[in-house]
Design a binder for these strands. Structure first.
Lengths: 191, 191
DNA sequence: GTCTCTTATGCAACTAGTTGCATAAGGCGG
DNA sequence: CCGCCTTATGCAACTAGTTGCATAAGAGAC
């Protein structure tokens, strides 16, 4: 249960409206914790009700008007508590690995094309991360906060590099395999 | 939506009862697609209703009796369809990276211990994968199905290696940082 | 022979996340 | 001044996954 904490972090970095948060989740934060605008609006409502954030005064809260939130002391305390608390990692779910395993049983037909497509996507994401790194972390910028944020970005860069290479490896393996309905069938075998 | 396909794959590898599936999900398949026994029983019910699997004859279906399922031709066809269909990868969610980003704002207190703990967990998982590799993929065993399954296991091994190394890197970075309430506070700053 | 433990199956309620759509304000074109 | 586009906020319904508990059969303890 981390969405509220992702939002608190984002709001501490910079007070924002729901839509601004949505856009920021589409960029930096969303790279390791994605969220739709509905999730965000709902969560903002809850956080406000719990007294962890509040609407910035000044703007009137009419519908269709910007409504910016800031974090209250209780929210900062909650985020600090959550950050330092021991947490078990959630198990991964990776549909592509599942598909490969399924392919071992029902055949590899059509899979290689999607492997290539995923490879391209990972490569594009990697280029985007590298661009962010170039822009946001030039050589001089290395205060404590910068170091931590850079560390997180590095994880993104290294992960995309990892998947790009792994998919290359998988594609090379595919090239050595018959690209048919698999080891024991032309598609449906016991029809 | 991949749980039904994970189950179909498992059942094609070997017809099983709900509990047997649950155990197999705790081992091999669950390493990239985890599921609880309730999810599995519910999904088995749906798959049977849709005519993709059926109860193996022989055993009577009284409660508390083993009830093994096998995949029907329609199920195999559905799995083949799903495997070859183009699918977009779901965005990752990684709470640890989120916590590091939060730590850049509210401080790193207490985080290093959990980084170390996660490092140990990844290392243990890595050892387990290596053991499986040694046991299930000895040098001679490399038919097409073996190659694909080995590829999937390799992804697990390489990912755990990746995280172990990344956490080492993060811990080294932490060692160079003040381990306090963060850049701008003793915990709650504007109280 | 009944008590308790393990195996096996399952329901119900809850939490999290997604999808589709609705509403309202403001700007701008004609 | 009316229709249309963009910005901004939000509800409702749905899908997926988790947690807690209930039920029943068989095995062995005593």
């Amino acid at each position: 249960m981390s969405l509220p904490h992702a939002i608190l972090t984002a709001l501490l970095e910079k007070p924002s409206s729901g839509l601004e948060l949505t856009r920021r989740f589409d960029r930096s934060i969303g790279y390791f914790w994605s969220a739709t605008h509905q999730q965000i609006y709902r969560e903002l409502g809850k956080l406000e009700a719990e007294g962890l954030i509040r609407v910035l005064p000044s703007e009137q809260p009419a519908r269709g008007q910007k409504k910016a939130y800031e974090v209250l002391p209780a929210g900062r305390a909650e985020l600090a508590r959550w950050t330092s608390a021991s947490q078990d990692p959630k198990p991964h779910r990776d549909a592509m690995l599942l598909r490969l395993r399924a392919a071992a049983v029902v055949g590899t037909a059509g899979l290689a094309a999607d492997l290539r497509r995923h490879r391209e996507m990972h490569e594009r994401q990697l280029a985007e991360y590298r661009e962010i790194e170039r822009r946001d972390f030039p050589p001089g910028k290395d205060g404590p906060e910068d170091r931590l944020r850079h560390l997180v970005l590095r994880a993104g860069i290294d992960l995309e590099t990892f998947w790009t290479q792994w998919l290359d490896h998988a594609l090379a393996e595919f090239a050595r395999l018959p690209d048919t309905g698999g080891p024991e069938s032309p598609a449906v075998r016991k029809a």
